[in-house]
Each structure stands twice: as structure tokens, then as C-alpha cells.
Design a protein around this nucleic acid. Structure first.
Length: 420
DNA sequence: TCTGGGGTCCTAGGACCC
DNA sequence: TCTGGGGTCCTAGGACCC
């Protein structure tokens, strides 16, 4: 049996941990540049605020009903996520962190009749220890566990945990479950299934295997099996990221080449740091920048360059150099770049690097320098030391008007909070 | 005026091989 | 005029997830 733990309204709940006065009030967390709503409290949902709604479109509602807005604060969310996950990880031998706020874990070491009570205890422990409300679903497959967790979230009577154990429970749960809400069924699949007369999870599960296969191919067949209780999507303890991205939308479009270069250098450094954290190196680097797709009044332009590195690396300086060279090749003067990003690809373990016979770089020396730079950042805070290319102008290109303090991760903010 | 960011997996089709 | 068959590997793009 699997349990799925899912944090309720996660980003909003993180903000509330340090602002208990906001309990019971409508709260939302916004995306970059305070653009869209990415997390909503139940009160905000009740007001009709939809996921992904642009802030400017719901401005009136926000003001009228006193909705509290936060800019996203990922250092805070990441830190609280780590605390939740570390509690759950201790309670199982097989564990998969599926996203920042969700994880699957196997509970076969607990006797069947005690599994629900066991999970209820975990929900309480996390609420008390970290301050985050969690819902859990229990079932024989991951897809059914997801279904169960949605019921746990919806009905307070479950006390945070819902299980699908018997055939009766399975049928009852799937009968009332919309097909589009099933894990793995997206917009396209929903439209196809609806056209074929399938609108609930049970209707889908009751069709033939051939129907699922022909309609939705391999992923659809897996979902079909899982809804029937078969465990076919195994827990994967993700060892290493296969790609690492850093991208941002700018508050106002960038035209200046030097300013765009500065952003790309920062994206590179950020990606490279993550690469080193998982002790891996990248063999390819992808750089892109483009105009706003929402604007019909300007020429659209999409710049992209894929660079294959001569020797796989995680060195910030080296990656920045390759990225900026590529950017200079493709940069178009006058274009209104609204978004840009860097992607590291073909990631392999550090130990698997094949040296280049004609390499002129002293890679050991570079590595030692990089280690010192990382150490300085760890000790004194992010961006304590950066490359010149990361800050040529010092211009502010993002907007975050509602950011909460870094309650848990930044010493300067922590001191300020305590002083208050 | 203002519209996020970061991932994974699968598939079709092209390139290439004998 | 007529021009095979069967593989593998790689990549781009689509679909999906949070």
C-alpha cells in the first residue's frame, strides 16, 4: 500500500506559519513579478479566484474583499518543504518526493488495520512540528492514492486521511470522480475521453485495456491499470536531475544587450550551483530569450542556442563564458526581450567525465577555486561573491512588492524579525 | 500597461547503418 | 518504366505534472 502526502495550499500555508493572524482570511501567493496567482487559501478559492489568474484581472476583487497578497518566497517554501519531507522520510523504507509539496511512500511495514491511524498521527505531527496542514490518501496504487487524498482534502470528516482499500470503496470513490481530475489525464486526454462518452474515473476504468491503449497510448494504459488497483507506476527515488533550468520573465522588456547578458550570467551561475549540489556535470547548455507572446503590437522574436560543451562541466565561470558567447551570436539589437533562460542538459555524474586529450584548462585548479566560492556563499549568504558578468548594471528587472521576510533561511532577516 | 517557473516521459519521424 | 527491408539512435515537440 502507498500513502500520498499532499500539503494543503502549500505556499499560502507557508506564509501563514509565520503569520497566524491570516488564518481564516483570503490569502494568495503570486508568481514572479507578482504576475499570476499560484497558490490560494480556501477563502480565496471561495471568492472565485482561479489558479493562474493574472493579478491585474482580479485587482477589484482583491481590494474589495481584502485579499492578502504575497510575492513568492521560494527560499521559505523550500526550507519548510525539507522539514515536512524529512519527517515523512523517517517513516518508510521507500520514499519519493514528487514535488515541493507532495510525496509518495510505502506503508507495507504497518499492519493494514493500523495504516489509517498511523497516517493520521503523521498529519498531526507535521501540523504541530512544522505548522503545515497535510492531507493523505492511502491505496494500492499511486493513482488511487492521489484520488483518496483529494477526498481527504475535500471532506473534513476524514481528519486528513482517506483510504481506498476495498473494492466497494474503490467503486464509490471513482464513481464520483471526474475523469479530468485523475492524475495523468490532462486537457487533451479529457477532451478525447469525453467525446467517447467517458466522464468519470469509473467509466474509464470499466472500459477495455485496448480502449485505453488506443485512445491514450502507453501513459493512458498505465493510468487505466492503476485505477483498477494494479500497482504499475513504481516509486522512483529520483537520483539525479536530468535537466536544470533557470528562467525569468522581466517586469519590463529588456533591449540592452549588456543587461540581458547580466541576466543570462546569473541564470548560469544559479543552474551551475544546483548542478554541483547534486555532484553532477552538464554536457550541453541551452540559452534562450524571447519577446512577450501576449503582445500583438510588436514583432515576435525567439533567440535560442544549443551549445555542446567540449568537456562536461559544472564550473560557473566556464558555463557563463559559453552562454554569453552563444548569446552574442544570436542577440538581435532592438528586440524587446521579455523572458530569458538557461537550461543545462545531458547531465551525468561528476565521476563519469571523460577528459579531453587536448584540454588546455587546469580543471583541478578551477575546481578548487569554485569550491572556495561556494563555501563563501554558504557561509555568508547567497550572492555574497559573484562574477563581474553577473552584475554590470545593478538595474532592477523584477518586481516583488509583497515579499515576506526570509523567516528561516536568511540570518539578516531573522535578526530583523527578532528585533521587532 | 499588467499574463510564472521547473520538471518528466513518450512518440513520431529523420538520419544512419547493414 | 523499373529502385528493399529491417534495424537503431537521436531529436523535437507534445502532453502531462506540480
Amino acid at each position: 500500500m502507498y500513502a500520498l502526502a499532499d500539503c494543503n495550499n502549500f505556499f499560502v500555508s507557508c506564509e501563514r506559519v509565520f503569520r497566524p493572524d491570516l488564518e481564516g482570511k483570503p490569502v494568495v501567493v503570486l508568481s514572479g513579478n507578482d504576475g499570476c496567482v499560484v497558490s490560494r487559501s480556501n477563502e480565496a478559492k471561495a471568492l472565485g479566484i482561479t489558479m493562474g489568474a493574472p493579478l491585474y484581472q482580479i485587482k477589484a476583487l482583491v481590494e474589495k474583499d481584502g485579499v492578502v497578497c504575497f510575492s513568492s518566497n521560494f527560499s521559505l517554501y523550500g526550507d519548510l518543504s525539507d522539514r515536512v519531507m524529512s519527517i515523512l522520510r523517517q517513516h518508510t523504507s521507500r520514499f519519493e518526493q514528487y514535488s515541493i509539496d507532495e510525496c509518495f511512500f510505502n506503508i507495507d511495514h504497518v499492519p493494514a488495520e493500523q495504516q489509517k491511524a498511523y497516517c493520521e498521527k503523521l498529519v498531526k505531527a507535521i501540523r504541530q512540528g512544522v505548522g503545515i496542514p497535510v492531507s493523505m490518501g492511502i491505496a494500492s496504487s499511486k493513482t488511487l492514492a492521489k484520488v483518496a487524498s483529494k477526498y481527504a482534502k475535500k471532506y473534513p470528516g476524514y481528519h486528513g486521511v482517506c483510504e481506498i482499500r476495498t473494492e466497494e470503496q474503490r467503486i464509490k470513490a471513482l464513481t464520483a470522480f471526474e475523469i479530468g481530475d485523475v492524475w495523468g489525464i490532462g486537457r487533451r486526454a479529457k477532451a478525447k475521453l469525453t467525446a467517447a462518452g467517458v466522464t468519470t474515473a469509473l467509466q474509464f476504468a470499466d472500459r477495455s485495456a485496448d480502449f485505453a491503449q488506443n485512445m491514450l497510448h502507453k501513459p493512458g494504459l498505465l493510468t487505466w491499470q492503476e485505477l483498477r488497483g494494479q500497482d504499475v507506476i513504481d516509486i522512483t527515488e529520483l537520483p539525479m536531475k536530468q535537466s536544470i533550468t533557470t528562467s525569468r520573465t522581466f517586469a519590463t522588456a529588456i533591449t540592452e544587450q549588456s543587461l540581458l547578458e547580466e541576466q543570462i550570467a546569473n541564470f548560469c551561475a544559479h543552474c551551475a550551483r544546483q548542478l554541483r549540489t547534486q555532484k553532477s556535470v552538464a554536457q550541453q547548455l541551452y540559452v534562450y530569450a524571447h519577446t512577450s507572446a501576449f503582445r500583438t503590437d510588436i514583432d515576435q522574436h525567439y533567440l535560442s542556442e544549443l551549445v555542446t560543451l567540449p568537456v562536461a562541466t559544472a564550473n560557473s565561470q566556464e558555463l557563463i563564458t559559453f552562454a554569453l558567447t552563444a548569446l552574442r551570436r544570436a542577440y538581435r539589437p532592438g528586440a524587446l526581450y521579455k523572458k530569458a533562460g538557461v537550461v543545462l542538459l545531458k547531465i551525468i555524474p561528476e565521476a563519469a567525465v571523460v577528459p579531453d586529450l587536448f584540454d588546455v584548462k587546469d580543471r583541478d585548479k578551477d575546481k578548487r577555486l569554485q569550491r572556495v566560492l561556494d563555501h563563501i556563499d554558504d557561509r555568508h549568504g547567497k550572492r555574497s561573491i559573484i562574477f563581474g558578468s553577473q552584475m554590470t548594471s545593478g538595474k532592477q528587472v523584477y518586481k516583488t512588492e509583497h515579499k515576506s521576510p526570509l523567516y528561516t533561511t536568511d540570518l539578516r532577516d531573522i535578526i530583523t524579525i527578532h528585533a521587532k
